[in-house]
Write a protein that binds this DNA or RNA. Structure first.
Lengths: 126, 126
DNA sequence: TCTATATTTGCAACTTAGTTGCATTAACTA
DNA sequence: TAGTTAATGCAACTAAGTTGCAAATATAGA
């Protein structure tokens, strides 16, 4: 699993993520790169980058998939249990470096927890 | 907004939710009631029931919409900030009556927080 | 550097969840 | 019970994401 070859599409996608830690939706990426690459390719590269621990994904408000850079993830373990914040005004999504401690739930084994917070971001709040 | 008339479809949908507090996906409801009612109607009634504070909705793992009964919600205020739990084995989804305290996030106004926990439920855990 | 091979890509067609417009039907009100 | 207005069914549509397959391309080895 994961990235094996460094192709043009891989390079182009990585470039989109390199300058900020903001999350980008798959739809947005297709809008940006869809002229140069087929959407199928974009979806497949995103999947490979996620398998490789380079990106992580999560769902935004309308069930749209978002991607963001990973911090210290590998192809064997994803440790992005941080919450994601989506601004209801400008639509921007980013990762919050905040710990949310999950309460112990009796008789259940928690494996993944996705937390999506909606509200006004730093820019729209002021 | 909200329910005005007590129609057959409203009654049928409420009946699906009356006996358990389990969440049911829109897709599942269409499977169950799609013979008697058009899927458009089902989606529309679900929206109205949500507007009225009878049901609340959230997104499951694949971006599919789930619905569950509300507890103490009204047409003016939805207060279902509880987490939802989806079993990775059997697929069952239910509401957890557990408090998750959101940490204060500087310069942001939090409005909604969706928490989706995945893991093994009580039945599949044992 | 060239070649063989396996990965990656583009294309087109498909799937699935959910939405829209409009004419018809069925609740509720007086 | 009649009139009105909300609710419904239908068909067609949208939008995100997937699949199969043939063609292109990156990489390892000679």
């Amino acid at each position: 699993m994961g990235i094996i070859r460094k192709t043009q599409s891989v390079a182009a996608l990585l470039k989109e993520f390199e300058n900020s830690s903001e999350a980008i939706s798959a739809v947005e990426l297709i809008q940006r790169l869809g002229v140069r690459f087929n959407k199928t390719t974009i979806y497949r590269v995103l999947t490979r980058l996620e398998d490789d621990g380079v990106l992580h994904s999560f769902l935004g408000v309308n069930g749209v998939k978002w991607y963001a850079k990973c911090n210290g993830c590998s192809s064997t373990e994803h440790k992005d249990l941080h919450p994601h914040f989506q601004c209801t005004d400008c639509g921007k999504v980013d990762c919050l470096s905040v710990d949310v401690l999950m309460p112990k739930i009796p008789n259940r084994e928690v494996m993944i927890s996705q937390i999506l917070i909606q509200g006004k971001c730093e820019t729209c709040f002021a």
